[in-house]
């Protein structure tokens, strides 16, 4: 049972609006909640402008101390203003062994203040540590020939990672009082004929560590059954490990029932790490579609990095899709 990814029943007697119900193991997405639970959920779009959802059950997480006394519940309400905005408020409470584990509140917004500007994002509050977990907001302007977008995100590690089942997110490892502010922008230009190009920039600012910038460009192309992409990015940080050039290229070609992919990544460190300046990984994939649901494939990969001077991998896959959307 514990290996189960999902299994649930949905009861939605109304086609588009009206209450819908779920029971079983599934993901809850809504405001502050992005959690897998064993439980029940009801969501109700009361009108096109107003809705509410609630859920409750047992959290599906890495178990460190047994399941007794573990509960999770929460909900979200939203109000839409026609063509202009959606504002949501959400909360989540989780108990572990009967004790307070998570108490989180969220505010989320989607705004269209003018017809050429879309804003969305959220802010989450940790009511146990009494601090903001994260603020994450984006803006986006899709024009006729270009899409411009930007990102602002800020996170306080102590508040954001207070409920964890992995020591990698401990302040002992990431630093006491550490936090990240991320600001980015990208411009995508569809060039026509299946060709698209984009440039992007992301700046990383830390409270304690040295800052970093990641920037570069990507181009993709698609022509009939052939597609490909190439990207080049520079990581420019104040610490040695964050100074490298990243290159990636892939090509994909389909012949009837066969699909072939070549995918290569190269990292060129400014200063050698464990004596290595060039790390790379090359992967080839061949997939044969037996029918609409069943496919068989083989992946062959070779990589070289500071951990492994020669690393080869072969993976054989037999995939059966119960749904056509995978």
């Amino acid at each position: 049972m514990d290996e189960l990814t999902y299994a649930f029943l949905t009861y939605a007697p109304f086609k588009d609006y009206g209450p819908a119900f779920k029971i079983g193991r599934y993901y809850v997405f809504g405001g502050v909640a992005a959690d897998q639970i064993d439980g029940v959920q009801s969501s109700w779009d009361i009108t096109t402008a107003t809705g509410v959802s609630v859920f409750g059950g047992r959290p599906v997480e890495t178990e460190l101390d047994g399941k007794r006394g573990d509960y999770i519940y929460g909900g979200r309400v939203f109000q839409r203003i026609e063509k202009k905005a959606e504002v949501g408020a959400s909360f989540l409470k989780e108990d572990d062994d009967g004790g307070r584990y998570r108490e989180e509140f969220g505010l989320d917004v989607w705004l269209l203040p003018i017809k050429n500007l879309e804003l969305q994002g959220h802010s989450f509050w940790n009511n146990i540590t009494k601090g903001w977990m994260e603020h994450s907001y984006t803006f986006r302007v899709p024009l006729q020939r270009v899409v411009i977008s930007g990102l602002y995100a800020r996170s306080d590690y102590r508040n954001a990672f207070s409920a964890r089942t992995l020591s990698a997110f401990s302040p002992d490892l990431l630093g006491q009082g550490e936090g990240l502010t991320k600001i980015g922008a990208s411009v995508e230009v569809p060039l026509g004929g299946g060709v698209s190009a984009s440039i992007n920039y992301t700046g990383y600012g830390y409270r304690k560590s040295g800052d970093a910038r990641y920037y570069g460009g990507t181009a993709t192309a698609e022509w009939q059954s052939l597609s490909g992409g190439i990207s080049i990015h520079r990581m420019d940080g104040e610490v040695e490990r964050l100074r490298y050039l990243e290159l990636r290229a892939y090509v994909k070609k389909s012949f009837r029932r066969m699909t072939f992919v070549m995918d290569a990544i190269n990292l060129r460190y400014e200063l050698p790490i464990s004596g290595l300046k060039d790390a790379y990984s090359i992967n080839g994939t061949a997939t044969y579609k037996i029918n609409n649901s069943l496919s068989a494939g083989v992946d062959i990969g070779y990589s070289k990095n500071p951990d492994f001077t020669n690393n080869a991998m072969v993976l054989m896959k037999l995939v059966y899709n119960f749904r056509k959307d995978l």
């Binding site: 411009i148 930007g150 600001i183 600012g205 830390y206 409270r207 910038r213």
Partner: peptide
């Protein structure tokens, strides 16, 4: 928080250019 000065300008310029040139949604 030591957010670099360049990031602020990039974000601001992108935002303003989006407002100025935008006519698309």
């Amino acid at each position: 928080m030591k957010t670099g000065r360049y990031e602020k300008y990039v974000f601001l310029m992108t935002f303003l250019s989006a407002l100025f040139f935008g006519n698309g949604i």
